[in-house]
Every structure is written in C-alpha cells, then in structure tokens.
Design a binder for these strands. Structure first.
Lengths: 173, 173
DNA sequence: CGATATACGTCAGTGATGTTGACATATCTC
DNA sequence: GAGATATGTCAACATCACTGACGTATATCG
C-alpha cells in the first residue's frame, strides 16, 4: 500500500480486488444456477441434466465425445443423465452419417421448449447484470465481462471454448 | 438483427452476447474451482471443505448461523464437513463471549496455511484475468468485472454480500 | 422463576452427481 | 482380418446435498 508499489507502477492487481472477485464469483455462480435448479426440480431433473440440455440445445448434432469434452465428466456420469433425458423424450439420438459409430444428439420439441425456458431465466439475469452493472461505467461492460470470464478459463482451453462457441446456433431464444 | 431493433435504440443487450456470457460463466467457474479441488484431494477434502475454510479464514469469528447463511446449505451438511475440519485441526471453535450458545469459528495455524495456499491459486487466476483480459480495453476492467458479478447476484442478497465482504480481513493473502 | 425461543449438535435415511475399473458391441481404418 | 475408436453398461463407491426428528445448552421474557 505504499513505497515501491505505487499506483503509477500498478504492478499486477491489488489483492483486495482479486479477493473480492473470488468471492463474488462464488456468490454469482450460486445464484446463477439457483433459478434453473428450482425449475428443473419440477421435472425430476438436476443440474447435470440442465448442462446436457443446454449444450445439446445450443449445439445440435453434438456427439457424445464432444459433450464429454465440454462437461469434463466421465461417460458413465454422462450416460446416467443422458439416458433419463432420452427415455423421457427430451433428447433424441441420430446415427452419424459419415461415421455410423457416432450418436448425434438433438433436442426434441419438448426438450427445446424446456431448455429455451431455462435459458430465458439465465439470459435475463445476465442481461440485467450487463445492462445495470452495480458499480461501473456502462460503456464496454459487455466486452469487459466477456474478456474477464474468458480470461478466467484455462489458457489452453480457450481456443476450444472459442471454437465451440463459434458453432453455436444463434437464432434461438 | 434489423428494422425496429436498431443499434441506436439498443433496447437491452444483444442476445448472442448474453448467451456467450451464460456459457462463459459455466466454463470460468469450472476452471476456477478446478485448481483448489485438485489440491484439496491430497488432504481428503472436497469443495465443501474449501468453502468452509475460505470463509472462516477470511472472516474469523464467524458463527455457525452466519456460515449457514453464506453457504445456503443445511446445518447437517455443514456439520459433516465442519466436523472433519475440526477433528483434523484445521478449524477451532471458541464459545461466544456475549452469547455463550454461539460457537465462533477460527482457522488454526495449519488451517490458515492451507487456506492461504488455496486462495493463492485462485487469486492468481483472477489477477491474471484482470490484468490480461482476453479481449478488452484494460481500463476499468476491475470495476467492470466486479460490477458484473455483483449484478449477477440476487438483488435482495447484494446488501448482505456487501456487508459481509466489508467485514473481511484484508491483510491476508 | 419458569416458559419459550434460539444456537447448535446429531442420528437416520435418501438422492443427485461424480469417480474407477472392467467389459461388450458396433464401426472405421489400415 | 487386426487394431483403434465411439459408444453403452455393470458394479462399487465417495461427496455433498436434502428431509425429518430429537437433544442440549443458553438466552430472553413475562
């Protein structure tokens, strides 16, 4: 707070700021998943089902391997929730055309409706956070938040996340 | 993308932006908790233990009730992990002075050392995210990220989060 | 003082989500 | 045809959350 580390140098970042952000990320995530969690409970689904629905909805035609890569869980864990979703008609599988070993995943009409509803509440919260930041100049808030969150991701993973997100269907909810 | 919703009006926020942020928050949180998770595994502890350690470390003297309020879990869930941490000497309890029913929580020397180490890796990631945002003007990145995350929190909860964080011991890693 | 409320601890059972390890099947590639 | 790859599945287990019930110590209030 003095001497060598003057505001002019500003070597890295002040510690109290990063400490705040660590906790804010905890609280933000807690509330961010809270809304969908409550909605899913009515269907007997949990957060794991939500994650699968989310990515299948936004990236139709995803393979099992790609989904495993995104979620970073084992195929046994994925299979349990995926089975639920397929059996109850929220997700459908189609055999890959070029590679018949692959199972391409798609949301059914029902699945798409449910997922759109879940996405709506999350987008609402994020949109509000962007539009009405609690203590900030409004200009560049999108880019700042996006840049911050992207920078939070494992560097070697960023390219994968970016190329994944470039594939996302954008004309949806 | 045309007609009524022109860039000039820019009614709320573009949907593709908020959609990106929804996913980025998932990825960011995934990697954010990944580092400590791996470290805790060596001690036989999990994420729940980390959360307790974190808040007790940064807010020494916290009561059980306050911790339950922060973590938003049941006392049975808290008790399981808290018992582990107390039995293994990472956290100590002291009877409240003004109210002898309360058990005030503190980190032991060992607990403080471990928690400081966990905090270090998380702060490192956040500091890097702030200092080297992936695609942003560097100015105001702290405030933007902080404002964004605060805005992500349930509005009625924000005052509680703010007053909690105002209590945090700041002369620590 | 005695009733009631509060802070905390604990027992018992359950469910969701993750793990490891092993093995089976279909399909592709060479 | 041999071996790699994509997927499915069985079994056992750990973590972390939940509900419901009950017990004890202490505080507060009439």
């Amino acid at each position: 707070m003095d001497a060598l580390a003057s505001p002019q140098n500003a070597p890295v970042v002040e510690e109290s700021v990063t400490n705040d952000l660590v906790e804010l990320l905890f609280f933000a995530y807690r509330d961010f998943v809270g809304d969908p969690d409550r909605m899913l409970a009515d269907y007997g689904f949990g957060r794991a089902h939500h994650r699968v629905l989310h990515f299948v909805y936004h990236y139709p035609g995803l393979t099992i391997a790609e989904l495993l890569d995104i979620l970073q869980i084992t195929k046994q864990s994925l299979n349990r929730v995926l089975k639920d979703l397929i059996e109850q008609g929220y997700i459908v599988q189609k055999t890959g055309k070029s590679d018949r070993r692959q199972r391409l995943l798609f949301c059914s009409k029902t699945g798409a409706t449910l997922t759109a509803e879940l996405t709506r509440v999350q987008v609402r919260r994020v949109a509000r956070a962007i539009a009405d930041p609690v203590a900030d100049e409004p200009k560049g808030a999108h880019a700042a938040a996006q840049g911050f969150l992207m920078a939070m991701i494992e560097p070697e993973e960023r390219a994968a996340v970016r190329s994944l997100m470039a594939r996302r269907i954008r004309d949806r909810s």
